[in-house]
Amino acid sequence: MSCVLVVTPLVIGSWPAISAAVTAAIATMGYSLAKAAGQRHGVDQHGKAKAEITVEDSEILEDGAGTGQEIVVEKDGIRATFSRDARGALRVCMEGEGHSKAELKKIGEELIGRVTQQYVYHKVVTELKERRMAIVGEEVGEDRTIKIHVRNW
């Protein structure tokens, strides 16, 4: 080994790029798309616990298409709504019956992690291809870590 680098990613991109990461992430976690790229309705689900999470290390670029839209995904009675908040950050609103706010927050943070993972994966692979670096292997570990092996460019 020559060096080891650890990086905490920033999620900065257009709404279509974030949407693509959300779609890729939910596919690996058993969520289904309830509503894609729809206009915001702001419907309050009365009686359901709710947890809102803002992804601090994120920015959804304002000049991109679809910034006023949201993506709604569902799994086992839990609904997650992804949108852009007033400051331009990615916000996720978690709702679900039979779950505490803390449980919903934990589930939401896991979901955000996986969206970030997919966003980073796409960014890394695109960069490697642009630099003509050959990906010789890819695997997903039991802990869901994505491993990419690059050799001889």
């Binding site: 060096c3 680098l5 869901r144």
Partner: peptide, 21 residues
């Protein structure tokens, strides 16, 4: 051979290990 091992954790954190560079 010049090699890179890139790991993207489920929370998005990235670890890059280089070899032979």
């Amino acid at each position: 051979a010049e090699e890179l091992q890139i790991e993207i954790a489920p929370d998005g954190k990235v670890t890059v290990r280089t070899k032979g560079i």
